[in-house]
Simulated assay, not measured.
Amino acid sequence: MRHSHAGTAAVPAVIGADGGDHAVHPPPAARVSSGVRTRSQHQRRKRIVQAAAALASRGGVEAMQMRTVAERAGVALGTLYRYFPSKMDLLVAVVGEEIDLLESSIERRPPSAETPDGRAVDVLMRATRGLMREPELADALIRSLIMAEVQVPFGDRIAVLLLRVSGNGLTAESASEEQFALAGSLASVWVQELLEMLRGRRTYEQIQRRIEIAAGRLLAGFNG
């Protein structure tokens, strides 16, 4: 079984006069100020990621120069580097943003196929259509998976999504090691097929057929 452990933020404590630990809480004004600053930082980060995606969609990785991204996002270059120390870190964030969009799409319109492999194919082909609307961006994202010098959680996130739709709500924690490995293998097949399509070696129909075959074999043991 796979297990994830979510960390919890530590609360500063001081030793009181009675020898016990007492949590130190910031005054209300400080908490409000911190909340505003966090929202501002989140919005700034989102602007940066969207600017990078827009540039990559028009010219691939080469167009995603850090200075150009900063100018498009309306932030100082130093600010950009505080959020993303390298272009690869920024590309990883763009990958994450694309997966977020896919997950939102799945939540709004869950796959309706009756079989686990049918639902998996629905998700992967929906992702293919979305990416191929912006082939330059798709190429940049796939290249980031192949050349990444930092961890790219793309495969695991796609695998978790496939587990959820194929296994009627399975999670990384509730799935067996074999189930997670099979979902991850299907995600890897899809990435490779997408790369072949970007290279002009596969048509959309060929990818769909190959994904259907792989899903049928890999997910045969999943409960419908």
Results as ranks from 00 to 15, higher is better:
L102M: 09
L102D: 02
E103W: 06
S104A: 15
S105I: 10
S105L: 11
S105W: 03
I106G: 01
I106N: 01
I106R: 01
I106C: 07
I106V: 15
I106S: 00
I106F: 03
E107N: 09
R108M: 13
R108I: 00
R108G: 04
R108D: 13
R109Q: 14
R109P: 00
R109S: 15
P110M: 08
P110L: 08
P110K: 06
P111R: 07
P111H: 05
P111I: 07
A113E: 14
A113D: 10
E114K: 14
E114R: 14
E114C: 08
T115V: 06
P116Y: 03
D117G: 03
R119L: 08
R119T: 00
R119N: 10
A120K: 05
A120V: 07
A120E: 00
A120D: 02
A120M: 00
V121I: 12
D122V: 03
D122A: 00
D122C: 10
D122L: 10
V123A: 02
V123D: 02
L124M: 12
L124Y: 05
L124N: 05
L124C: 08
M125G: 09
M125D: 11
M125Y: 12
R126G: 11
R126Y: 12
A127K: 03
T128K: 07
T128L: 15
T128R: 09
R129S: 11
R129D: 15
G130V: 00
G130S: 15
G130I: 04
L131C: 08
L131G: 10
